[in-house]
Design a protein around this nucleic acid. Structure first.
Length: 290
DNA sequence: GCCCAGGGGTAGT
DNA sequence: ACTACCCATGGG
């Protein structure tokens, strides 16, 4: 199947900018799973065509095509998001305008994915104090623990992300064997105590309620909860503050503080789509600022 | 060997 | 409320 793409799309950096951990590229094609549907994606920017291989017929009750359009955020107007944030920057920090363009313009094909909130919660709990390569290996380790979740497109294997019921059957030692370290007990406690139906209702609640609920679990602090809100619940007012963003805000705005304080700073500077801008800043720091 | 990583919990101020 | 320190482990 082929999907015509008539908006800007930087698929490589969308799938490789730290918002998702289980996509991998081989021979110019991307391999990954969206909800319970394995996909092979091959984007040709010169033709603006997205070639899709799959064994599934639908994603989350939608047609394959609509499901992929939704997942990739192809309906997001990146120009509007930039314009909205720029207006806010002009009001609050006009001296930052040149750097704002320098950061955002090269990123206007990077899109925030609509990922599964449960998978985001588990994966970002495992992300603490680790680099992205290590996080990716952990996520693969966890998914690969369940051979019954393996599916194929032709000869190519994929693992569906484990459900909460599957994870409930594991012990702390199982997680230790996957080298999750001190995160093992956090994950065990999470799967034992979370009310997954309650968790899913956060989708329609304000950011503050999302954060309040999620930070109630051990191992889920403000940074991780913001990542889940942004990448799992598509709440663009979320503003995750990790060591990179913290250093950036300190360097260019002279502010310091914890993840909660700096989240508010980011919201004030960049406005209601600050989560999108946060991702562009993260990409900028890690590709052009080192 | 050393330092860092998409942090968070906790005890001591 | 703020700080210092610890946590397990892999990668550069």
């Amino acid at each position: 199947m082929e999907i015509p793409v008539n908006v800007s799309l930087d698929l490589d950096n969308t799938l490789n900018c730290g918002q998702t951990f289980r996509w991998h590229k081989k021979n110019e094609k991307w391999y990954g799973v969206v909800n319970r549907t394995p996909l092979i994606l091959n984007y040709d920017p010169t033709q603006s065509l997205l070639e899709v291989q799959s064994i599934g017929e639908e994603i989350n009750g939608e047609t394959l095509e609509n499901g992929i359009i939704h997942y990739l955020g192809l309906n997001d107007s990146l120009q509007s998001i930039k314009g909205n944030a720029l207006k806010q920057v002009e009001k609050t920090h006009p001296d930052f305008i040149p750097l704002f363009h320098e950061i955002v313009d090269p990123s206007l094909g990077i899109r925030l994915l609509r990922q599964d909130p449960w998978e985001m919660l588990v994966e970002f709990l495992l992300s603490t104090q680790s680099n992205i390569l290590t996080i990716k290996k952990r996520c693969e380790k966890l998914a690969g623990f369940f051979p019954e979740n393996q599916v194929f497109i032709k000869e190519e294997p994929f693992f569906l992300f484990p459900s909460i019921d599957q994870l409930r059957h594991l012990e702390v030692d199982d997680f230790q064997s996957m080298l999750f370290g001190y995160r093992s007990k956090w994950l065990k406690e999470l799967v034992d105590t979370i009310d997954i139906r309650m968790f899913k209702t956060l989708k329609n609640m304000p950011l503050e309620q999302k954060l309040n609920y999620m930070t109630g679990f051990s191992g889920i602090g403000y940074k991780v909860a913001n990542c889940v809100a942004l990448f799992g619940f598509s709440d663009f007012r979320a503003f995750p503050v990790d060591v990179w963003i913290s250093r950036f805000l300190n360097q260019y705005f002279g502010v310091t503080g914890n993840a909660e304080n700096l989240m508010v700073v980011g919201q004030e500077i960049f406005g209601e789509f600050c989560g999108y801008i946060q991702e562009y800043i993260f990409y900028y720091i890690r590709t052009r600022c080192r």
